[in-house]
């Protein structure tokens, strides 16, 4: 018991000591720093890379072949978080530009969809409606 209490006290001390170091939530007038700029423009770049990829006719054809309407594929991609978009964009960028690569990349994109599907089923996310149908009643 004693140890627990001590631990609790120690934890409180740590938290209160750390409190002043936490950045204030209210913004202040200032220059936006170079690192913050990078974070923001990287997000934009990733989305642009993915959009350009999804707009390619051979990619749309590949999705059709997989039984996914291109519009549906767009909707899935639009639902990616910034972190997921980052992963997908880097997959697209690191692939060779030849025709043969499209299937592999769409496959990698599908891995993201599979992750979403699995996390949906487990209840961590809520992207695919059909996994919830059984509980609808």
């Amino acid at each position: 018991m004693k140890t627990y209490r001590l631990k609790a006290i120690a934890l409180t001390c740590a938290v209160s000591a750390a409190a002043p170091a936490v950045a204030p939530l209210s913004a202040q007038a200032a220059m936006v720093g170079t690192e913050k700029l990078v974070t923001q423009s990287r997000v934009d770049e990733n989305r642009a890379t993915i959009d350009a990829f999804m707009a390619r006719e051979d990619v749309r054809e590949e999705f059709r072949r997989l039984g996914v309407a291109p519009e549906e594929a767009d909707a899935r991609v639009a639902a990616l978080t910034d972190a997921e978009a980052e992963r997908m964009a880097s997959t697209i960028r690191s692939a060779p530009s030849g025709q043969g690569a499209v299937g592999a990349i769409v496959g990698a994109g599908l891995i993201v969809f599979l992750v979403l599907l699995i996390t949906d089923i487990l209840g961590f996310t809520d992207v695919f409606n059909f996994t919830k149908n059984q509980n609808a009643s």
Partner: peptide, 16 residues
């Protein structure tokens, strides 16, 4: 060629 402008600027900020 694989580096984007954000990759490059981000790394440069690391040099600062």
């Amino acid at each position: 060629a694989f580096a984007t402008v954000s990759d490059w600027i981000g790394e440069a900020a690391g040099l600062e």
